[in-house]
């Protein structure tokens, strides 16, 4: 944890320093630190995900759903990462477009799950035809 805080603080100081002369380099530095911190965390995240996967496979839930959930989390994270960075660089329009893209992709991935839910719900309702 201390490493993350240390890296973050050092980076903010350096960005302040670089802001006046070369704002482009400062922006690249923020992008770099964002990636570095997440690279540091990704090992813990993969451990958590392995644990979740084991639990899911034990309870023999259909693995497709679990994988789509994982993908949705991944897409959500990347979209948020990119939109924050572009917002930070002052490009609000690009940031909102990236978020829009992320939402649509997540919705597209959720289609099978949604159809499965709707089918089960319809199955529950005692329809007159049946």
């Amino acid at each position: 944890m201390l490493q993350i805080v240390g890296i973050g603080l050092i980076a903010t100081f350096l960005v302040m320093l670089l802001k006046e002369q070369k704002s482009s380099v400062a922006f690249l530095l923020t992008v770099f630190v964002g990636c570095a911190i997440f690279l540091f965390l990704i090992d813990q995240i993969s451990a958590i995900l392995h644990m979740l996967q084991k639990i899911a496979s034990d309870t023999n839930i259909n693995m497709v759903y679990f994988e789509t959930i994982l993908k949705i989390i991944g897409i959500a994270y990347i979209a948020e990462f990119a939109s924050q960075i572009s917002k930070d660089a002052g490009q609000g329009a690009i940031a909102s477009k990236i978020e829009l893209g992320g939402k649509i992709l997540i919705l597209a991935m959720a289609i099978p799950i949604l159809t499965a839910i709707i089918e089960t719900v319809i199955g529950l309702i005692p329809s007159s035809r049946g």
Binding site: Q3, I7, I10, Q21, K22, V25, A26, L29, L39, F40
Partner: peptide, 21 residues
């Protein structure tokens, strides 16, 4: 993982300052 990043951060900042100068 952490050791490398600190060096690279300082390198980027250093090169940035050097260019400006």
């Amino acid at each position: 993982m952490m050791g490398i990043d600190v060096d690279v951060i300082f390198k980027i900042a250093g090169v940035g300052m050097a260019i400006a100068l």
